[in-house]
């Protein structure tokens, strides 16, 4: 089986991103490289160019990376990183943070390719919680 697509969780909070990563591991992200990119370099609330760039590099095992932002500057800072390092196999996805990450992780763990994972994460917006 191909090496799975990586997932980067970009949040303003280090704890939020790390906690979501723990949840994904419980649901079965398995061999999927999930990397949390939360907070500033000193652990404060905010987003960091360097934290995000390093996380993308760490999550990249050769088959691409899906980046899920929580809000606002998580999107803007990730865009700046991707503008500086444009790559066709790194996708910033507009999806609900928790549900999108769960859908992405399960799809990646099942061997889905980059496009399948992007689609699964986006679909999370249309699936009711209950």
């Amino acid at each position: 089986m191909n090496r799975p697509v990586g997932i980067v969780l970009v949040s303003h909070s280090r704890g939020l991103a790390a906690g979501l990563g723990e949840l994904l591991a419980q649901i079965g992200s398995g061999e999927v490289p999930v990397v949390a990119a939360g907070g500033t370099t000193d652990g404060g609330i905010g987003t960091s160019y360097d934290v995000i760039a390093n996380a993308i590099a760490q999550a990249d095992h050769g088959n691409g990376v899906v980046v899920l932002p929580d809000l606002g500057s998580a999107v803007l800072t990730t865009r700046t990183v991707l503008d500086d390092h444009p790559r066709p196999d790194v996708a910033l996805v507009d999806a609900p943070f928790v549900e999108g990450a769960v859908a992405a992780a399960v799809t990646a763990a099942s061997g889905g390719d980059l496009q399948a994972i992007v689609t699964a994460a986006k679909e999370a917006r249309d699936v009711p919680k209950f």
């Binding site: 949840l23 419980q26 649901i27 079965g28 769960v102 992780a105 399960v106 763990a109 099942s110």
Partner: peptide, 9 residues
């Protein structure tokens, strides 16, 4: 969540 993840995969 956990069994749902297993089922989906």
């Amino acid at each position: 969540a956990r069994p749902a993840g297993k089922l989906a995969q």
